[in-house]
Amino acid sequence: MKIAFVGKGGSGKTTLAALLARHLAAAPDRPSLLAVDADINQHLAAALGADERSTRPALGDHLAEIKDYLRGDNPRISSAAAMVKTTPPGRGSRLLTVAGPNPVYDLAVREVGGVRLAVTGPFAERDLGVACYHSKVGAVELLLNHLVDGPGEYALVDMTAGADSFASGLFTRFDVTFLVCEPTVRSVGVYRQYLGYARDHDVRVHVVGNKIVDESDVDFLRSHVGADLLTWFGRSDWVRAAERGQVLPLDALEPANHAALRLLRSSVDSTEKDWQRYARQAAEFHRRNATAWANDRTGEDLAAQIDPGFVLGDQLVH
């Protein structure tokens, strides 16, 4: 399953994404897990226990190599340079699995706090005034487009705050989207904005309340998000320590918050995989991007990259 964490800046989505990643990594059934930090602020590694000053190889710095590998022998793609963030896979493309191994993971995946992690890379000084962060996040979209995740496998992505993920089809690349929401008017406003964009694209959104102090906070969220409220996390010494850079043992988490974690995983596990929808939406947003800008940039009709009838699925991985 592909999982996204979204929400208002400061809502705690990175902390909860790290918490679920650690919960999955420590599960007795040892599921395969790949975590990806696609947030411009790049704090997921620190939330998993890494030193903030440490550096990791970034997907965004290896985009040319990633394109060259994923292209494979796909005859519909003239060159790696003709690949854009929305380019879908087809016959001849190289596909990725969650556990690997493959050259992409060799380049940009490292273990942090027991979790295999890839990062897009921060918005660097050299990017100022000449680039946008979406160019870095494009590496994540390509990765997800070519990723075949089977039963008991998870790709978990900490997305950039707010509605920036709607700049392409990235928001449709997930089986489940957890929207982290504080009991505040501003946080609920981000929920409404996100749901407004996602409503017409079969995006499964579960609201996860955070920083809940008492029942009035839960009542506030219920009054604004209704049945979309899946569960919530209360005020937590564990989370407070994590937000200050101190990662405590997972068994120190409060029982009620542990129960919320288990509910997150069970909601993911009960979601039905829909590869047909995944392929249909990949083609839809690739056509949109091709028409809007990519055809002019590459000098090609990139809609021709779409391989009719090609659908990702377990049967394609050997």
Rank of each mutant, 00 (worst) to 15 (best):
M1K: 04
I3W: 03
F5E: 08
T15Y: 04
A18S: 12
L24I: 01
L24R: 02
A25E: 11
A26K: 04
A35C: 10
D37L: 05
D39G: 09
D39K: 04
I40C: 10
Q42Y: 07
A46L: 12
L48A: 05
G49Q: 05
A50V: 01
E52G: 09
P57Q: 00
P57F: 01
D61M: 14
I66A: 15
R76V: 01
A82V: 00
M83A: 01
K85V: 05
T87W: 06
P89G: 13
G90I: 01
R91C: 09
G92N: 11
G92F: 05
S93C: 08
R94P: 04
L96R: 05
L96Y: 04
G100M: 00
P103S: 13
L107W: 11
R110C: 06
R110M: 07
E111G: 10
G113C: 05
V115C: 09
A118L: 14
V119P: 11
T120K: 03
G121K: 09
A124T: 11
A124G: 04
E125P: 00
L142Q: 12
L143G: 09
L143K: 06
L144V: 06
G150K: 08
P151E: 12
Y154L: 10
Y154H: 09
T160K: 13
S168D: 14
G169K: 11
F171R: 05
T172E: 13
R173T: 01
T177V: 06
F178K: 00
V180A: 08
C181P: 00
C181H: 01
E182S: 00
E182L: 00
P183C: 04
T184I: 01
V185W: 11
R186E: 13
V188M: 06
V188P: 08
R192G: 07
R192K: 13
R192H: 12
Y194V: 14
L195F: 15
G196H: 07
R199S: 13
D200T: 08
D202N: 10
R204E: 14
K211T: 09
D214K: 12
E215R: 13
E215D: 15
V218D: 10
V218I: 13
V218N: 10
H224G: 09
A227W: 01
L230C: 03
T231E: 09
W232A: 15
W232V: 08
F233Y: 10
D237V: 02
D237C: 01
R240A: 15
Q246P: 00
L248M: 11
P249Q: 06
L250H: 12
E254W: 02
A256G: 07
A256N: 08
H258E: 12
A259Y: 05
A260T: 07
R262H: 12
R262L: 14
S270C: 03
S270Q: 09
T271H: 03
D274E: 06
A283K: 10
F285S: 07
H286S: 11
T291M: 14
A292R: 15
A292I: 08
W293T: 08
D296W: 03
G299A: 02
E300A: 05
D301M: 00
Q305E: 12
I306Q: 05
D307I: 02
D307A: 07
P308L: 11
G309S: 08
F310V: 05
V311F: 14
Q315N: 12
V317I: 15
H318G: 12
